[in-house]
């Protein structure tokens, strides 16, 4: 299994598309950062216009922490799309180039092979988000400095600099669990459909559907609590003034459970299918 994982990592490392993906993430981030600057500016004006009735402000709320937060809000559609394209390509390219045949004429276990693909997909997702986080913090803090973070989530919440930084960090970690779910889903779609273009279309459709479902208010029903799109928003909970760690951990655990189920299903299908 280790040898398979090593082989997958090596292929990922040597493929030009990996670097295009990471480059796209940085580029996307830079664009978002500058649009975030103007968004953040407008947002603070709106939020603070009411408070200006009773308060003066000392200090700048338009700082690196706010911009990292805006990036965080914006990235959760674009990033999974990019990840789904790259991750599904881990398998569809092998179907397309026929290298899957070359692999399975060797004494290789199908389950272990596809499991190694899943493992590398999740690892790549973690690395991509870590890279995103690093560049987001780096660029934002370098250009815009640090300071208090203001977030509106049921109430106007003010977080001091260090507290804000940790909340943002944990939010990225929580978001990583969500992104891993999407990556695993895209690989499973690739197992089913094999063709690169069809897989991309279906993965994009899945993402769009997820975003639409996110906007539906399921209230306090079970759907609202257990639907994967709702669980995937757990990162937001770090920006309530009092963090409900129990709920966040539970949500992410359930989401990891869903990820495991999707992965298991994909492995089962791959194992029983012919390598055409």
């Amino acid at each position: 299994m280790r040898a398979l994982i090593w082989a997958e990592l090596y292929k990922l490392y040597r493929q030009p598309r990996t670097y295009y993906a990471l480059g796209a993430i940085v580029l996307m981030e830079v664009v978002i950062l500058f649009s975030a600057y103007y968004q953040g500016s407008a947002l603070i004006d709106v939020l603070m216009s009411t408070l200006k009735q009773s308060f003066y402000f000392k200090g700048d709320l338009l700082n690196g922490n706010l911009l990292v937060y805006v990036i965080l809000n914006t990235i959760w559609f674009h990033l999974p799309l990019l990840l789904m394209i790259i991750v599904s390509g881990l398998l569809t390219s092998e179907y397309k180039d026929g290298t899957l045949r070359s692999i399975f004429v060797q004494p290789v276990s199908k389950s272990k092979f596809v499991l190694s693909k899943y493992f590398v997909a999740m690892l790549f997702t973690m690395v991509a988000i870590f890279f995103l986080m690093l560049t987001a913090f780096g660029l934002s803090y370098t250009i815009f400095g640090r300071g208090d973070l203001i977030v509106y989530l049921d109430t106007l919440n003010f977080f001091e600099n260090n507290d804000a930084m940790w909340r943002l960090f944990w939010a990225y970690l929580s978001g990583t669990v969500t992104m891993m779910f999407y990556s695993v889903m895209s690989l499973t779609i690739a197992i089913f459909f094999r063709d690169t273009t069809i897989t991309w279309i279906l993965a994009t459709f899945f993402l769009i559907l997820s975003n639409l479902m996110l906007r539906v208010d399921f209230g306090t029903s079970l759907w609202g609590k257990l639907l994967y799109v709702k669980l995937g928003e757990s990162w937001q909970h770090f920006f309530y003034y009092d963090i409900n760690w129990q709920e966040i951990v539970l949500n992410n655990t359930i989401l990891l459970g869903y990820t495991a189920i999707v992965m298991g299903f994909g492995i089962l299908v791959f194992k029983h299918r012919d390598i055409a």
């Binding site: 292929k11 040597r14 493929q15 030009p16 180039d97 026929g98 290298t99 899957l100 045949r101 070359s102 004429v105």
Partner: peptide
């Protein structure tokens, strides 16, 4: 099978 399938990159 059919043709040698290699990692072109």
């Amino acid at each position: 099978i059919e043709k040698p399938c290699l990692y072109g990159y």
